[in-house]
Design a binder for these strands. Structure first.
Length: 109
DNA sequence: ACTGTGACTCTAA
DNA sequence: TTTAGAGCCACAG
């Protein structure tokens, strides 16, 4: 099956469990392109809202969130993550230590 | 085929 | 610790 990497990124993100977060690099890695973190972000930017894609569970490798260029507005992503049980640090970043998604699936194909 | 753009990541200072 | 620069990949025009 030949699908655009872009679509593959969507699949990976769609598989992120609730209360868990993944970095862009993580998504790219699972998609088979460990260096395509930027492509992931660029792709998400074009994601239609009707796909139910949990893009709010995708954060930077350091646990920080996007600067406000998200679906509804600034702070929305943080609110959603907190609501799902994601632990946040006092500095406003996600606790990657405990909430980083440990995927063991095969999204590379 | 080439260039520009982007919600990225890493290393160095 | 924070800031700056370079590298990376996919997509659209």
């Amino acid at each position: 099956m030949s699908v655009s990497l872009n679509e593959k990124f969507y699949r990976v993100i769609a598989n992120i469990p609730e209360g868990r977060v993944a970095s862009y690099g993580q998504v790219a890695l699972l998609a088979g392109r460990p260096r395509a973190a930027r492509a992931v972000g660029a792709a998400l930017r074009h994601v239609p809202a009707h796909l139910e894609l949990p893009c709010h569970r995708v954060v930077f490798s350091d646990g920080s969130l996007c600067k406000g260029l998200i679906f509804g507005g600034p702070g929305i992503q943080e609110q959603l993550l907190k609501k799902e049980g994601v632990a946040f640090l006092p500095n406003g970043k996600v606790n990657m230590r405990c909430c980083l998604w440990e995927s063991s699936g095969d999204f590379s194909r």
